Amino acid sequence: MQSPFRARNWIIFLLINVLVSAVTAFLVVQAFTQAVSRPATTRIVAAATQPIAAAADAAPPVAEGTNIPPAGDLFAAHQAAGTAEAVTLPPQPTATTQTLAQATRGTVPNVRISAVIYPGQRTREAVVIVNEGDAVDLTGWTLANPRGKAYTFGNVVLLKESFINLHTTSGVDVPTDLFWNQSEAVWRVGDEVVLRRGDEVIATYLVR
């Protein structure tokens, strides 16, 4: 039979082991909890900043020439109104033939006569006019040969970097082809073709 002294020593030894195990387990759990909590904080910050970048990328494009107040003024306007709604810009006017004519009246358009094809053959000859600049209103312009034969353009707009063919023969006008409806050829080799806007000579071409 064991003595009471030895039994008491075993009990003390077991209690010390239990206490050490408990402390060790507590420290391990604390270290693991701290290690796991750090990446979680980083992910939360990233998630919070992502919608801001997405909102900036998704901002709608603004038309060229629109008068937009500085960002600070927009923010101040939001604060004064007490709302987060977007500031509504006034609608911009659209270009019309009339405004186009007013805009190009005082400028020299970049329009030239590119070629006169099949001169002397009424059913095939045509003058090729090229616009190498911005859109131009040709209304009232004339194209003439040296013998006083002239074509007057109607309500025609030559778009930016485009061309138009003026045919001597008969036909139905389309955006890229106009028809003079002449009974005989208009152009001869050696003729100087003159394109005028009123009294202003815009372009000339020597028929070859």
Rank of each mutant, 00 (worst) to 15 (best):
L158W: 05
V18Q: 13
A63R: 00
E85F: 03
N145H: 08
L143I: 15
T204P: 01
G140L: 08
I52T: 00
I16W: 06
P61M: 03
G82L: 06
G190M: 02
T24R: 13
L143E: 14
R112W: 04
A81I: 04
S183V: 15
T123I: 12
N181P: 12
G190R: 01
D134L: 07
A144C: 13
A31V: 12
V136W: 04
E184W: 09
Y205E: 02
R112F: 05
I11L: 12
P39M: 02
D134Y: 01
E192N: 14
L19H: 08
R43K: 13
G65P: 00
A25M: 14
I129Q: 03
L138E: 08
T152P: 03
T107R: 11
T33E: 15
T97I: 05
A56L: 05
E132L: 12
F32G: 14
Q34R: 14
P109I: 14
A144D: 11
S114W: 02
A144E: 15
S37E: 09
E184H: 10
A22T: 12
V174F: 11
V207I: 04
F5L: 14
E161V: 14
A7N: 05
G148A: 10
G154R: 03
G198N: 01
T97Q: 09
A71R: 03
L166M: 08
A144F: 04
K160V: 10
T204H: 04
E184A: 15
G106S: 08
Y118K: 10
A58M: 07
T152M: 12
L143N: 02
A81M: 05
N181D: 08
A101C: 01
T66N: 00
R38S: 07
P4E: 07
G198Y: 02
